[in-house]
Design a protein around this nucleic acid. Structure first.
Lengths: 152, 152
DNA sequence: TCACAATAGTCCGAATTAGAACTACCGGTC
DNA sequence: GACCGGTAGTTCTAATTCGGACTATTGTGA
C-alpha cells in the first residue's frame, strides 16, 4: 500500500488517517496475537470457528481475512498444532468441515476474551460513545464505496 | 488480524468498520497497483522516493510501510527492474543512498497521478468535505491512541 | 443419461512479512 | 588510541499473501 503525500485534495486527506489508524491498530493487534503464540491469520480462523459447530473452507474464507489459496496452509499448520480437525461431509465429497478440537476450544476461550480486553481500552480512550457512532457510520460509507467499486 | 463478532461493547464496534473500510480500500488499491506491474510495497517505495534526491534505507523504512528486514529484498527487485540504484554515501560506509533511475522517475510520474486519479472518486462519493474533516479527526485520534500504546 | 458448468479445496510461484541475529561502521568517552 | 555502545543494512527463518491453475465432485439442463 501507498502513503502518498497529498496536500491539496480534501477527499484524499482521509486516506492517510485511515491507513495510519489501521496500521497503528494492526501493529498492536498483531503483536498481542503473536504473544499468544499464534499468527494473525491463525487467530482469525480460531475466533471465527469459536462458538460454531464447524465451517467449510469456503465459509471460513468468506468470514475471515484469509483467502482460499492461503487458507489451506493456515489450516495445515493449525491441524499440526492439534487445534483444528478436518472432517468429511456426508453427501458432498467436495466439502470439508473444519472444527476446533478440545484443545482448540480451550485456546479459543482463553485467548479471545484476553484479546478483547487488551484491545478495548485503546478505542475507549480515543473516542466518546457518540464519536464511536459517528466514526462507524463514516467508515462503513467508505467501505461500501470501495466494495461497490470492486463489483464495477 | 481478527474480526471478532462484538455485539455489546460500543467502543469495540468501531473496530469492525475500521478493519472493513481499510481492507475494502486496500483490495482496490492493491489491485490497481498490480495492474501497473508493481507490488504494493514496490509502489510504496517508488512514490516515497519520487520528488526526492534519494533516501537512505532507514529513511525509506520509516517513511514507508516496509520494515528494514523486508526492504533489502524489495530494493533488490526494484534494482533488477532498473527502477532504482544504490549509491554509496561519502563519509559514512554504513549508509546507502537509494535513488530512482531515469526509468524509475518516468514510471513514478506516470503511475502516481494515475493512481491518485483512480482512488480519489471512491472517497469523493463516500463523504462530504465536512465528513472528511470529521473522519480524519477521529481516525487520527484512534491512530494516536494505538501509537501511544506501542510506546508503553 | 450425458455433457457441461459450477463449486470445493489444493497446489504453485513469486513476493512479502516480522523480527531477530549478524557484520561492518561510526561516535562518544576515557 | 582503545573500547564500547549505537547505527546501518543484510541475512535468515517460518509464515503469509495473491491469484490463477488444477483435480475431484456436484448440480443443471437438454
Amino acid at each position: 500500500m501507498d502513503l502518498p503525500n497529498l496536500k491539496d485534495d480534501p477527499y484524499l486527506q482521509v486516506l492517510r488517517p485511515l491507513v495510519e489508524a489501521y496500521l497503528a491498530f494492526s501493529r498492536i493487534d498483531s503483536r498481542h496475537i503473536r504473544s499468544l503464540r499464534l499468527t494473525p491469520s491463525q487467530f482469525d480462523v480460531i475466533v471465527t470457528l469459536g462458538d460454531t459447530t464447524g465451517l467449510t473452507c469456503s465459509q471460513l474464507s468468506s468470514q475471515t481475512l484469509v483467502t482460499k489459496g492461503t487458507l489451506t496452509g493456515v489450516l495445515d499448520r493449525l491441524e499440526t498444532k492439534g487445534l483444528i480437525k478436518r472432517e468429511s461431509v456426508l453427501g458432498d465429497k467436495r466439502r470439508t468441515k473444519i472444527k476446533l478440537t478440545e484443545k482448540g476450544g480451550a485456546l479459543f476461550r482463553k485467548v479471545f476474551a484476553a484479546h478483547i480486553a487488551f484491545i478495548r481500552p485503546f478505542f475507549a480512550r480515543a473516542l466518546s460513545p457518540q464519536e464511536v457512532h459517528t466514526a462507524s457510520t463514516l467508515l462503513l460509507r467508505i467501505r461500501d464505496s470501495f466494495q461497490k467499486g470492486g463489483q464495477a
